[in-house]
Design a binder for these strands. Structure first.
Lengths: 121, 121
DNA sequence: TTGACATATTCCTATATGGGAATGTATTGT
DNA sequence: ACAATACATTCCCATATAGGAATATGTCAA
């Protein structure tokens, strides 16, 4: 079985670095495909294909303006990603806390010498 | 050119749903490969391979304890993902605000009827 | 209508993948 | 040393890519 489709969800869609760049670029302001091509220095078909993927998972919205098609980031679709990563927030806070505590201990008790670093059972 | 390697960065690594499940499971408590196999109902080689990917990008840490190898989530490695999604936070707040304002307007001026929905230039 | 501009799609190809099965490696208990 | 346990790796394969080139579609302007 190959990898899941890039259009299967937002997680797969944003795995591609260029698509992340496009999302960032379009979050500032609505832009045409041509703008993206020029600004990010990508081939036009490539951009269209990336936009297709982003559109399929709801990460961008499009609307025609004459010959052009204007795209904009749909930030709402990024929330699930944010929420998922956020569930780990408390853990990295714990880790930072542990590191901080360790540093303080090491600093305070420079006399006690050894006793730990790895506590085998 | 195919998709970037799953081990190229955390974004690619977490694109796989099972890997996300493993990360969540391991964030609670350090666990052996066997625990993961039983709890998430996956084949053992599959788990080992997923852990390999997660380890390569620093999302998990491992240590031997006798015959077992205990894995734990390295939450720190998830921060870049969190930070990236966070850059869009203000935008979805804006969008929610717009929606809210629109709803209020629609509610207050039920007499004014039309004039917008799409404003062609 | 015709041409020019803007974007989308199709075709092609090398490549990384995830699952299953089989096998390899490390560690413990006897 | 040997068997058993716990993981890791390898091999095989169907499949979804991403990029490049070519082509199709859509829209406007004269």
């Amino acid at each position: 079985m190959p990898r899941a489709s890039t259009t299967s969800d937002a997680f797969n869609a944003i795995a591609e670095p260029r698509r992340r760049e496009i999302l960032t670029y379009l979050s500032i302001q609505e832009r045409s495909v041509g703008d993206i091509v020029l600004t990010l220095c990508l081939a036009q078909p490539s951009v269209s294909k990336h936009l297709r993927v982003l559109r399929d998972v709801g990460l961008v919205r499009a609307r025609r303006r004459g010959r052009r098609v204007l795209y904009r980031t749909n930030a709402e679709a990024i929330r699930p990603l944010h929420d998922w990563t956020r569930t780990f927030e408390r853990f990295w806070q714990h880790q930072l806390l542990r590191i901080k505590v360790r540093a303080e201990e090491a600093n305070e008790s420079r006399a006690v010498s050894s006793e730990n670093t790895e506590k085998p059972k």
